[in-house]
Design a protein around this nucleic acid. Structure first.
Length: 446
DNA sequence: TGAAATGTTGGGGCG
DNA sequence: ACGCCCCAACATTTC
């Protein structure tokens, strides 16, 4: 006969999602502090993986990061149990164990994640398990920064004002309460002790080929942050942090970087506010994921031309600023933000192609892809979003080049054949395309 | 975080 | 000295 489990023979699960670090991790902190025998879990979510092409740099990054997390936990005498499948199936099995008393994780605000977590919560309710979720991915989430009447902001500037005001409401010797790091290390003793280690699914077993794309570092120099406002608009200059992918997967802490930003550069901090802004827009207006934020902009008669679409994707439009950007994206999984605006304006306005096509292409290629920010950016460019560029604001790809890459360093870096007869003629005329765009939007909006 | 078109001003050449 | 034109530079309006 089996020995009865002692009364306190209980355990808690901690579920890693987009918070792939052991330090300064909100939900992990509370799991360790409030409960004991905390077993860490990661799931390679087949619902997501099955939609991706067979080589994806982010899958490779995820696999490497999860392997490293597992090693760190083993080093601490514990383990990370890694699954590959559908979260609901996996949790159905794990939570039926009567020793489980809690499931802890950090909140994810994207529509798919919201729905997934709602179902997981139902499962927890069924087994009377506490489903405890925490804010970790942003500084201020959903309902924390709202207008005085409680409604969400839809314009950035007043949102930012309120965001900054809230930051200073609770300060301790100059440091905002909201930037404080969770001292997870103090409670590592509560991690479950593991005798027999679980195995790690191989990269291959996930159904993907390894990608060779290089991942930017998790660190950024003080100099880059301090000079961010002066240098961020020049794509040939190393003036941006490239931390996007690490914010996305939580391989760095947003609080840590916000602290540095507050000290070193207001413009850099502003970019973190944009991130919170778009996160709460997507949460409160989930329709933006598929439709225009402003209803008036629905149904613009988009063109579609296979040849033009291919040339845009491959960086062969004949407009150097557009082409350099697209080639940078295709080769590195990154594109400088100034150039993102130029290529997005070009696709939606010069080419009059549906912004959703551009959004999907960026989603496939960008290492730092984040649904809320990417969607916000594309709706901004097409004119349909919150606080958007008015429809008549059309970037001139040539003057953008003279303004922001006067020496053509960025252009030449990505277009080696620039200046030779190998480089194509412009595939459309700027003036004509501009006028066509104005006429189309004007007709639709009136 | 736009660009082009249109309007205004003032200096200088010139008869 | 004066009127006229041209045009650069800047300001304002428009899309």
């Amino acid at each position: 006969m089996l020995a009865a489990c002692p009364k306190d023979c209980t355990m808690t699960y901690f579920w890693f999602r987009r918070d792939l670090r052991l330090h300064d991790n909100a939900a992990l902190y509370y799991a360790l502090k409030n409960t004991k025998d905390v077993q860490c879990v990661f799931i390679f979510d087949q619902n997501i993986l099955e939609k991706l092409p067979s080589t994806d740099a982010r899958v490779t990054f995820l696999h490497d990061t999860v392997s490293s997390l597992k090693d760190q936990l083993i080093e601490l005498g514990s383990d990370l149990v890694v699954y590959h499948g559908r979260p609901l199936d996996i949790w159905s099995k794990l939570l039926s164990n009567k020793d489980v008393v809690g499931l802890y994780c950090n909140r994810d605000y994207e529509p798919y994640a919201q729905q997934r977590d709602e179902e997981v919560k139902k499962l927890c309710d069924k087994y009377q398990i506490d489903f405890c979720t925490y804010k970790d991915h942003v500084i201020f989430e959903k309902d924390e920064v709202t207008k005085d009447d409680g409604l969400p902001y839809t314009v950035f500037t007043p949102y930012k004002r309120k965001w900054l005001a809230k930051l200073t409401q609770r300060e301790d010797s100059g440091l905002s309460y909201y930037f404080k790091a969770y001292p997870n290390e103090k409670y590592f003793g509560q991690l479950s002790k593991v005798k027999k280690l679980s195995s790690m699914p191989s990269h291959e077993s996930l159904g993907f080929d390894r990608s060779e794309i290089e991942i930017p570092s998790t660190t950024v120099t003080q100099k880059v942050i301090r000079e961010y406002d002066k240098k961020r608009n020049f794509p040939a200059v190393n003036g941006t942090s490239k931390l996007g992918i690490h914010f996305r997967f939580g391989t760095i802490s947003i609080r840590d970087k916000a602290r540095k930003a507050q000290k070193l550069n207001d413009t850099f901090l502003s970019e973190l506010v944009w991130r919170d802004f778009y996160s709460q827009i997507l949460y409160h207006f989930p329709h933006v994921a598929n439709k225009e934020f402003r209803a008036k902009y629905e149904g613009i008669p988009w063109r579609f031309d296979e040849e033009e679409w291919t040339r845009w994707k491959e960086g062969r439009t004949g407009y150097p600023m557009v082409d350099a950007g697209m080639r940078e994206l295709n080769n590195t999984g990154y594109m400088h933000n100034r150039v993102r605006m130029v290529v997005a304006s070009f696709l939606t306005k010069h080419m009059l192609h549906d912004w959703r096509l551009g959004e999907a292409y960026f989603a496939e290629k960008l290492l730092d892809f984040d649904l809320a920010s990417n969607n916000g950016g594309w709706q901004w460019a097409s004119g349909s979003g919150t606080d958007a560029a008015p429809y008549f604001r059309i970037f001139n790809p040539t003057s953008q080049m003279t303004k922001f890459d006067p020496q053509k360093e960025y252009i030449k870096k990505w277009i080696p054949e620039f200046g030779t007869d190998q480089y194509p003629e412009p595939m459309l005329d700027h003036k004509e395309a501009r006028e066509r765009c104005l006429a189309t939007y004007k007709m639709h909006l009136n």
